[in-house]
Design a protein around this nucleic acid. Structure first.
Lengths: 343, 343
DNA sequence: GGTTTAATCGAAAACGATTTCGCAGATTGA
DNA sequence: TCAATCTGCGAAATCGTTTTCGATTAAACC
């Protein structure tokens, strides 16, 4: 069944294609009754304009792209949900691209997207210390780009982030308050802004509350399997930590799994705190203390900023950085003090 | 920075646009050395053809759509990952649409997508007993459509599913073997094929192994909050069950949360088994027994079938139904017998 | 009544790529 | 040597919309 074209619809109505087009877009040039007729016919025949012809002519696509490292992660899936909500409300379509934490892949995706396929991009960058060239280049194309969560400071665009430094500070403070004397910060890779912020925040807490306490940055891998191996090595090493801050959800899960197989008790032997949006955090054994990010809000805000840029016609652009606070949710996995008191 | 067009590139090269186009698509009409020249220039200037002009002319979009109820669910996010893998390999773009279990929304999405925006659709349908009209209509348009997991039998297209009846049977059998005398099957809504299959499979096990055992279908809501309220009502009712089969991940989480707040012990007071792909199943308190679906494989298979249809030029079409087996992973949440023996 | 002005609509030119078709010049075959 | 074939490329039509720019008629003004 070939699709109906505006030309055929016009013929049916005894009108010119241009008239039909204008009627459909509610142009002032067309009389109310003609509009009525056109609308009715369009509905009757289920006519919708060919999106590609339309995009070609209008030079926009009513489509945005989400570029994220992965989708099997509560933070990202929730953020996507928030983005989709806003996009759908604005009657935009959403393309999704996964970088799998691969810089080269991220680059090729961004190069490809700069050919006009999308009107704008929402991105949370992959780990890896490579350059921001591809993002700067995309930005130069004049089409809006908004970062969320994992940002690159050197690119002057809107950003929606959480107070990572502060959250890292609170995380570390919380562990210290619960008797930790040796904290390891588990990261998924260098070069990622949020990793540095979270780690540095933790360092500040150590300096303030118990200076000299060992506090190490452990570069695990984004790959769960190799991460587990590294965590195992860490937990069985001579100076294993008694407190862990997992920078992302996957590292928390890996830590729990490894503790289970090594029979390391949480929180007795090891206190665990993680940046995570796991819906099951409170149901784990023991309940996982988390720094929860408002993922849905972040997604919505980032998308809103994108559409804001999309609708403003080339203003004097001053990039905003919106910071939405994360919250520390202490649970059994870190409540060592309480646990001790109860004995 | 305005985008480079093929015309401008041709001018740079002293060639006609048609020649450049043909060279880029490796046409036999163009000499090797000209191709070389064109390719080089294209790379140098970062030229990629305008996708909308291209799609308009070629009447295809190199884009597919994923239509799913939600993305904050391990099954769907993993399936999406599998789909994306295949799509990316085939150099296709992926649009994502969320129906939020809303039939009307699903309909409007499918109507919209039938205007040629995508070359094909992968869908897992929303709950609700409404008609399959929109899917039948889309199918009539001649563009391929593939179901995964949540299928509609009346639409004659490729489907990738799991052995739901069998899995329901195993689930129910497992609960009976672990001392359940009253089983409730928690569904997220009527009219969904997989719900019926899973429930009916369970009924068969009851008939076979302990006929007469109360076995009820409980229609919870897809909305977590109302689901929790209904579950609470169930668990505090006069004849509350001692065994629960959760049809989807969210219901398992809701059940656990509710048990926690009602201080119902799992598995002592209630055994819980759920269709779920939770990565934390083994880490819960107690470990959640699951029926795990091979979500990634399902996604990959479904996408492969779609591309198969896309590449075949209108064959005598016979819809395939691929069934990939789920696996029962028993954990502490149902191991009542063992627990008893240990006392 | 003649001239503005407004109100509706249509013709035709884009948008940027692809494809058909034809045209040269070179090569081959008899 | 002349026709037939082959090679390599370009001109122009086309995909389906949107938009610009007139054109036509009717209403309004002086």
């Amino acid at each position: 069944m070939a699709l109906l074209t505006i030309k055929q619809l016009a013929e049916q109505l005894g009108l010119a294609p241009s008239t039909v087009s204008k009627a459909l877009r509610d142009s002032y040039e067309i009389s109310a009754e003609t509009k009525q007729r056109v609308l009715e016919a369009a509905r009757q025949y289920h006519f919708t304009p060919n999106p590609y012809a339309s995009s070609l002519r209008r030079k926009n696509s009513r489509t945005i792209a989400i570029v994220v490292p992965e989708v099997e992660d509560s933070f990202f899936s929730t953020a996507i949900n928030g983005i989709e909500f806003v996009a759908h409300s604005a009657d935009y379509h959403v393309l999704i691209y996964l970088t799998h934490e691969d810089q080269a892949l991220e680059e090729s995706i961004l190069r490809e997207l700069s050919n006009g396929r999308v009107d704008g991009i929402l991105i949370s960058v992959a780990t890896g210390s490579a350059s921001a060239r591809h993002l700067l280049d995309y930005n130069m194309s004049g089409k809006p780009l908004v970062f969320f969560d994992r940002v690159l400071d050197e690119v002057p665009v809107h950003k929606v982030i959480t107070d990572d430094f502060e959250a890292g500070y609170l995380a570390s403070k919380h562990l210290l308050e619960n008797g930790c004397t040796h904290i390891s910060f588990l990261s998924i890779g260098d070069g990622l802004n949020i990793m540095k912020q979270r780690f540095d925040g933790g360092a500040k807490a150590v300096r303030e509350f118990r200076p000299g306490t060992p506090y190490h940055y452990v570069n695990c891998s984004p790959d769960p399997n190799t991460a587990r191996i590294l965590i195992q090595k860490l937990l069985t090493s001579a100076n294993q930590p008694d407190g862990i801050i997992g920078a992302v959800e996957k590292l928390a899960i890996a830590t729990y799994l490894e503790c289970k197989s090594l029979e390391i008790r949480i929180p007795e032997d090891l206190r665990v705190l993680a940046f995570s949006n796991l819906p099951t955090a409170s149901l784990l054994k023991p309940g996982l203390s988390t720094i929860r990010q408002p993922a849905y809000e972040i997604g919505k805000k980032a998308a809103s900023l994108l559409f804001e840029s999309l609708n403003k016609n080339k203003p004097p652009f001053t990039p905003k950085s919106i910071v939405v606070p994360s919250v520390l949710e202490p649970r059994a996995s870190t409540l060592w003090k309480e646990w001790q008191d109860h004995q």
